[in-house]
Design a protein around this nucleic acid. Structure first.
Lengths: 122, 122
DNA sequence: TCAAGTACCGACAAAAATGTAAGCCACCCA
DNA sequence: TGGGTGGCTTACATTTTTGTCGGTACTTGA
């Protein structure tokens, strides 16, 4: 256990970092422009606050977004993409392109399991 | 609902196709060489037969792998990668590279949720 | 006849991811 | 004093995903 198999590519770590229902979308938004909590909430209306904060925290822990608190009044927290996040974003471009090109083959629904992993407008 | 948001990249469809715990690993194996059911079971020992067949079926439905039955005795079923699958594979290369390069920053564990999405030796 | 191999199917259950709803704290405005 | 905003936190429930285990149909070999 914990042992890597000899034939491993780097997809495991990568999918851990952008996998799930929201991360890619959030990275995409934050990449377009830094945004504050409430702003992201508006940009991605279907996400719950719990998920939003949770994903943001994980992305911060993974070093792909940066969180900055401005001790103003009213309080302001801004999330921005890091260098590391930009690299990830670039690495995602070909994949996004593939998805875009070939979206809509057996589209509409895939095979009845379209909700938990990456739905929305990604 | 079901309406696409104006600012959508192609990651949604793509992540539906290779997201989850096993698909990337399976695609990776099948890409290296066509393989039969039992062979894949041996190559990816931790997957259950149910998951194996389920993922293979979905990947077949998504057009990234091809399933061919040889009416021999004993029966033989071979899974191979399609053109479409190869394109996906290529689109995954940068992501894999990113993951490989940066695996092991806060590694060992990410943030306590390392099992369901892409674990193993990807 | 019995065991073993191949490629599955399907009921059920555990685990993981996501959602809901309520509340907290600090501050402003009226 | 009450209500509103911003950025959260927490407990609990639901949905999705994955796993376990047993069974099927066929055939070869002992």
């Amino acid at each position: 256990m914990g042992k890597k198999q000899p034939d491993s590519c780097g997809l495991g770590p990568a999918l851990e970092v952008i996998g799930g229902k929201w991360k890619a979308l959030l990275l995409w938004q934050i990449h377009k422009a830094p945004a504050r909590f409430g702003e992201l909430k508006r940009l991605v209306p279907d996400i719950s606050e719990k998920m939003l904060i949770q994903q943001l925290r994980e992305m911060e822990a993974d070093g792909i977004v940066h969180r900055e608190v401005f001790p103003e009044v009213p309080p302001r927290v801004e999330y921005s993409i890091t260098e590391f996040g930009i690299e990830l974003d670039n690495a995602l471009i070909p994949l996004a392109r593939w998805g875009k090109q070939h979206a809509g083959r057996s589209d509409g629904q895939g095979h009845g399991k379209a909700s938990a992993l990456a739905p929305q407008g990604l």
